[in-house]
């Protein structure tokens, strides 16, 4: 490792810790969100330095990109609710609600002790020689793909990836179940497009993004890339199209959207079950079928992930005004009884 490399690593690490500390300490929400995105981008650099380009891609697209966009979107909703220039605890946290200082002190002391202990143990501990990386490298040819990370994600530990999609679907169902106001992001289809810059950007960026996403899915079996990175890129294109009013915003009410959200998971499970009579084990691809099946699953997942991400971004629940009728619903547990009775008082 060169001195220059060490210097770079040291500055990346310092920057990471400084950004994290600052964003957790600041009292201004907007500043915190901007710092969060910078933190994510710095982290991508760290992943590259640690020899993990797959993760660097995902971090930039999902960690910094989508998550940052989710926060900004939510911020936007709150800012609209408050109105321009007004001060509000929603956006400026004065810390008055934070726990008492004895709690902070106790927790802080405990956390510092734990950190010192863990750091000491991790640096000093003797290690068993690693066997798994060699084992994975040796058996990678049997997986049907050449990118070892894709091999782990879709063959060795395909079950985890399937459940990971289930996490996305669960979050999606949860967000759909939340009530939302009538205001939606983006405009209705057919509405005249007032923003020429946005329109031009869309015309240019969307085809490029879609081609790149297809390439990333396809190349994922040999090079860094794969369904998640491609899906988040595709989601970027979807968001642009929605914001520009070219695509209608997806909703839970739209049947194709629901089919696409659940389709990746359903296809993955059905593929796993289909091989069961042939090989006896769930997701145990028959010989010679691993590569085409993995490619097919990845393609399905790319679409599913893209739709879920667009939907999570575009369909942020608006902040409705407090609804007195809702508050009168029996808060102690059974909303239905009261809702069905028309919300009379007890």
């Amino acid at each position: 490792m060169t001195a220059l490399g060490l210097l770079l690593d040291a500055s990346v690490v310092l920057l990471l810790v400084a950004l994290a500390t600052r964003l957790l300490l600041t009292r201004h929400l907007f500043e915190a969100i901007v710092l969060f995105v910078s933190y994510g981008l710095t982290l991508s650099l760290a992943w590259v330095r640690l020899g993990a380009p797959n993760i660097a891609l995902a971090e930039a697209a999902l960690g910094a990109g989508v998550t940052g966009a989710l926060f900004l979107n939510t911020y936007q909703r709150l800012a609209e609710r408050i109105g321009d220039g007004a001060k509000s605890p929603l956006l400026e946290d004065d810390g008055s609600q934070d726990p008492p200082s004895w709690f902070k002190g106790l927790l802080g002391g405990g956390v510092i002790l734990l950190g010192l202990g863990a750091g000491w143990a991790l640096i000093g501990a003797g290690r068993r020689p690693a066997f798994l990386p060699h084992e994975i490298a040796a058996r990678l040819p049997e997986t049907g793909v050449q990118n070892p990370v894709t091999g782990v994600l879709l063959n060795f530990r395909g079950y985890d990836t399937l459940l990971e999609i289930a996490v996305l679907v669960a979050a999606m169902a949860g967000v759909w179940s939340l009530d939302r106001g009538s205001r939606r992001f983006g405009r209705a289809r057919g509405e005249p497009d007032e923003d020429p810059v946005l329109h031009a950007l869309t015309r240019f960026a969307v085809p490029v993004t879609v081609v790149t996403a297809v390439y990333l899915t396809w190349v994922g079996s040999t090079e860094p890339g794969g369904a998640f990175q491609a899906g988040s890129l595709l989601a970027g294109a979807g968001v642009l199209l929605t914001v520009a009013g070219i695509l209608p915003p997806p909703t839970a009410a739209s049947r194709p959207v629901r089919a696409m959200v659940a389709g990746g998971m359903a296809g993955f499970v059905l593929a796993g079950i289909a091989v069961l009579p042939l090989t006896g084990q769930f997701l145990h691809y028959p010989e010679g079928w691993a590569y085409p099946m993995i490619l097919g699953i990845e393609a399905l997942l790319t679409v599913s992930i893209a739709v879920v991400l667009v939907e999570l971004f575009v369909d942020v629940p608006a902040v409705p005004e407090p609804d007195p009728a809702l508050e009168s619903i029996d808060p102690s547990g059974d909303p239905l009884g009261r809702a069905l009775r028309g919300g009379e008082d007890s």
Binding site: G63, T67, L153, L168, I305
Partner: peptide
């Protein structure tokens, strides 16, 4: 590659 796969999964879970 195993930790890399775990971190990729973790990033998606975090977004959700």
């Amino acid at each position: 590659p195993l930790p890399q796969a775990m971190v990729l999964t973790g990033i998606v879970v975090a977004v959700a």
